[in-house]
């Protein structure tokens, strides 16, 4: 301890040279930005009704749906990612694909778990692939984008079920083919619009190919789905 004191003494003696001169007044206004409206908003989420919270989250999810349906170069989907939308879409799609196979003895229809696994496993593979190719996107951002971009395909599934309610002939097949192809193209286009910026420019084709394959498999499952008749 004595050693330390010995070292300290001359050190702090040196510091005294740098001290503030007496004629400069050491005073001023210290204001803490306590009451800005945004802070109040965040505090109020504690005692707001649960309905408001859920509605707000649903609204956020809905806004992201709009981004997917109208894919302009926006970073909203990337900036505040969430996995609620993908989960909703995935469950909806799996349930609708399940519907035909559940009540019949025919095992050929896609099972709920299968759809679920294809969607999540596929997104993870695509994400890892884009990481390996040198993309600068984070893991969950990519999952979020790929999940939200299933939206057109889920819509196509809904249309297909409605068409299947009406008739089951050649005309309905052609209608379904057109709808599924359009939504498949839309999904691929939207996801590339979001994901392409984070990739090195000369490797976009390599990243897009697995995305294409992923949506192609889902689209093909939707197209070949037929409610048990």
């Amino acid at each position: 301890m004595e050693d330390v004191d010995e070292i300290n003494k001359p050190l702090f003696a040196g510091l005294s040279d740098v001290s503030i001169a007496d004629d400069i007044p050491v005073e001023g206004d210290i204001t803490v930005p306590m009451s800005s409206p945004s802070v109040n908003d965040e505090i109020s989420t504690l005692d707001e009704p649960v309905k408001d919270t859920i509605l707000r989250d649903l609204k956020a999810v809905g806004q992201k749906f709009m981004h997917v349906m109208y894919p302009k170069k926006s970073s909203a989907l990337l900036r505040d990612w969430d996995l609620w939308g993908p989960l909703l879409l995935c469950v909806a799609l799996a349930l609708m694909l399940q519907g035909g196979a559940a009540d019949s003895k025919d095992d050929g229809g896609p099972q709920f778990a299968e759809v679920f696994v294809i969607i999540w496993f596929g997104s993870i593979v695509i994400t890892i692939n884009s990481k390996l190719l040198g993309g600068t996107i984070s893991f969950f951002q990519s999952l979020c984008v790929l999940g939200y971009c299933i939206l057109p395909l889920t819509a196509a599934m809904l249309v297909c079920r409605l068409v299947l309610l009406g008739s089951n002939g050649l005309v309905s097949f052609i209608v379904r083919l057109v709808v599924v192809t359009a939504s498949f193209g839309w999904s691929t286009f939207a996801s590339t619009a979001f994901l392409a910026d984070s990739q090195p420019p000369n490797r976009k084709a390599l990243v897009v190919y697995p995305v294409f394959l992923f949506y192609f498999v889902i689209g093909w499952m939707i197209l070949t789905f037929s409610a048990s008749s």
Binding site: I7, P10, L11, G14
Partner: peptide, 23 residues
């Protein structure tokens, strides 16, 4: 930094770097 130079003179060059960090 004149004062510091004095310190270095006093302490010797070996410990100078560490003390500068602590300053």
């Amino acid at each position: 930094w004149g004062g510091f130079d004095d310190n270095i003179m006093i302490q010797g060059s070996g410990s100078a770097v560490i003390d500068m960090e602590n300053m």
